[in-house]
Nucleic acid binder design. Structure first.
Length: 488
RNA sequence: GGCCCCUUCGUCUAAUCGGUUAGGACACCAGCCUUUCAAGCUGGCAACAGGGGUUCGAAUCCCCUAGGGGUCACCA
């Protein structure tokens, strides 16, 4: 087989959606697996909705996920430019050829006329389809109308009414479409830009794309693209239409279902490793019951044939579970780097603290990451490490502070801790054990109270280490404060 | 509505050519461990959409029905 070339072709009309991210992932894995080239092409033929900001966020998201490309805008390559809006000359040349060959024609029908025709078709039980009103205009008629309509015309492809178009899809096999169901569709819009089907078909050929891996919503459009390629004498690429990602209610994923873009998951404190791993599992099975994989293992195992055919419903809980796994198992340095922005955002630390309190920050993250599932939760769960003012949980207050003898015990603990030196986990543990024995109070009673008094929470990371990180001074202050609450 | 795709636990999925107690993971439940549990360990619950065929034998092959999704744009 020739050198494999696959492309990811987002349109910059929104942020990178998780469905798009998975499509990009599958393209990337495929290319890496078989040693091909990855192309990033920007399908920005929708002049109204495309923006540079969206382009930036898409590129940001891809980069954050680690999905790199060999050719693309900025980066360049032998088949550029990689923005469709910069390829208009190319499309126009192809268009001219099609018209000269009588394979495409100008159409001057107005929206109203088309609307009427459509209604009539529906009334009379015909499928609404363009029937070729402008198909047989003479050269003079075309010139006349062109002059009269101020360039407000489109170009349509003359679609054969007989025969079938067969699409080769790696995931679905051979899919047959009847040509008569297609109609003469538009390939250039009145603003002079090509339509998606046309630009896509032309570019896939010009960029020598061998495999088109994209979402299933494009399957029904594929025969159109293939007919364009046929009319142009191109060979069609191999297709792979990956199943859609649906919301829990089986509908198309939308804003009302919560986070749908990569950027939103990032803001929620999801790690790229977790998102990649989760997305890989959605619609693809690596075999041998593998679940947690790094990207290299995915590359080794990936194949389009093992991509499933049915749509997948995304499940936030599994993503979160994977995230908690990576939170715990990745290098602390890595997690630190990712968590610090969240600590800053929550006002736990300042910019100067990042280097000034680096060691403490590292220790806090190391402790807290064992207990939480997202970077956001690291920040939420570490309030008491960074602030002396923190709320006491309701149920804990009830359970610990309203307890008979609570104040007394807190004072005992306080004096016990005062003498511990050095103030480190091991020593603290021993000290508390001694206290437990002397007073004949089980640690099961001492420790939870102590935790609650100094953190305001009934649960949290390892207590001894928490105490060590907090430091004696703070703890003694907090114990005193807690004791005063008990007495009131 | 026409056309196209799809259908295994609640969810993601596995089950080489038809023969499995239909496997794993998340979630859920229970037990254990522990200074806490939101961690860890162990165990449990839970599925072949329905109906016809073909076959000694069907989740697997064929047909029909139902359900879901996509597409039929001067959006991609």
């Amino acid at each position: 087989m020739d050198k494999i070339r696959a492309r990811f072709a987002p349109s910059p009309t929104g942020e990178l959606h998780i469905g798009g991210a998975r499509t990009a992932l599958f393209n990337w894995l495929f290319v890496r697996r078989y040693g091909g080239k990855m192309i990033l092409r920007i399908d920005d033929t929708d002049k109204q909705r495309s923006t540079e900001e969206y382009l930036d966020t898409i590129i940001n998201s891809l980069t954050w996920l680690g999905l790199t490309w060999d050719e693309g805008p900025e980066k360049g390559g032998d088949f550029g430019p990689y923005m469709q809006s910069q390829r208009l000359d190319l499309y126009n040349k192809v268009l001219e050829r099609l018209i000269a060959d009588g394979k495409a024609y100008y159409c001057f029908c107005t929206t109203e006329e088309l609307e009427q025709q459509k209604e009539k078709d529906q009334r009379e039980g015909r499928p609404p389809r363009y029937t070729g009103l402008c198909r047989n205009l003479s050269y003079h008629e075309v010139e006349e109308k062109k002059a009269a309509c101020a360039n407000n015309y489109v170009i349509r492809l003359l679609v054969p009414e007989e025969g079938d178009t067969v699409v080769e899809d790696v995931i679905r096999g051979w899919v047959t479409f009847e040509n008569k169901g297609l109609g003469d569709f538009i390939i250039r819009k009145s603003d002079g830009l090509p339509t998606y089907n046309f630009a896509s078909a032309v570019d896939d050929n010009l960029m020598q794309v061998t495999h088109v891996i994209r979402a299933e919503e494009h399957l029904s459009n594929t025969p159109r693209q293939q007919i364009i390629q046929e009319q142009l004498g191109y060979n069609a690429p191999v297709y792979a239409h990956v199943p859609m990602i649906l919301a829990p209610d089986h509908s198309k994923l939308s804003k009302r279902h919560g986070a749908t873009s990569v950027q939103e998951y990032r803001d929620l404190g999801i790690l790229p490793e977790a998102l990649i791993n989760y997305l890989a599992l959605l619609g693809w099975s690596p075999g041998e019951d593998r679940e947690i994989m790094d990207i290299e293992e995915m590359v080794e195992r990936f194949s389009l044939e093992k991509v499933s055919k049915n749509p997948a419903i995304y499940d936030l809980q599994k993503l979160t579970w994977l995230n908690s796994h990576y939170l715990r198992s990745l290098d602390l340095e890595r997690i630190k780097e990712e968590a610090i922005p969240f600590l800053l955002k929550h006002g736990h630390i300042s910019m100067e603290d990042v280097s000034k309190k680096e060691k403490t920050i590292g220790k806090v993250i190391e402790l807290v990451r064992e207990k939480v599932r997202t970077l956001e939760e690291i920040a939420e769960a570490s309030v008491y490490f960074f602030h002396d003012e923190f709320p006491y949980e309701e149920k804990g207050t009830e359970k610990h502070f309203r307890q008979e003898g609570a104040r007394n015990l807190l004072e005992e603990i306080s004096s016990c801790l005062t003498s511990i030196e050095p103030f480190q986990a091991e020593e603290i543990k021993e000290g508390l054990q001694v206290l437990s024995k002397q007073k004949d109070i089980p640690l099961k009673k001492i420790n939870p109270l102590l935790r609650f008094a100094v953190t305001g929470q009934t649960m949290g990371p390892d207590l001894m280490n928490t105490l060590e990180v907090l430091g004696k001074e703070k703890i003694l202050e907090r114990l005193e404060k807690a004791a005063s609450i008990c007495s009131s």
